[in-house]
Amino acid sequence: MTFSGEFFAFMSLALVAVIGGVLLLNLTKVMHMIIALVFTFISIAGIYVLLSAEFVAVVQILIYAGAITILMLFAIMLTKHDDASEAQGTIWRKLLLLLGVIGFAFAVYIGIYNFNVEQLPSHLHENNVLQIGKALYTKHVIPFELTSVLLLVALVGAIILAKNDEKEAHKE
């Protein structure tokens, strides 16, 4: 492994991503946790650029760092958030969970640490958006159209669930 600029970029992006995740676990205020996670999302977009997926990187910034973060912030503002997130569970439960997660990570790491397929030259970085558009509208056109139905159902469902029911309010 040579010490190239690409390697340096990968290491710094990965470091920011992992630090954001660890801060999510360790900070006490809910608002700070979400702000920490924005750094993780943006550096994951950088990782996508390294993997020659520019369009996915832009979508990542738009949807995760933009929409989903704002949605979560609104959910926190609308609910009670002043009690931080107090740790009232037993220490044993957390310790057992930590051991389980580390065991899982170790088991998967054994499988992937020397994964190395012979790298073939790819053309993903040339006209990335054009390639994605062509593939979406030819090979994957049926899932693409079904996605619109899914989004419509999610929109209607979210509005109906979150809507304040007038009749119920009158009964109380």
Binding site: M1, S4, L97, A105, Q119
Partner: peptide
């Protein structure tokens, strides 16, 4: 051609997955 091995990206994804799981 990239100089970063694929296992580096897979390891990063594994770490993030484990943080999310915990």
């Amino acid at each position: 051609m990239s100089t970063i091995p694929a296992s580096a990206f897979l390891s990063l994804a594994l770490i993030l997955f484990c943080i999310g799981l915990y």
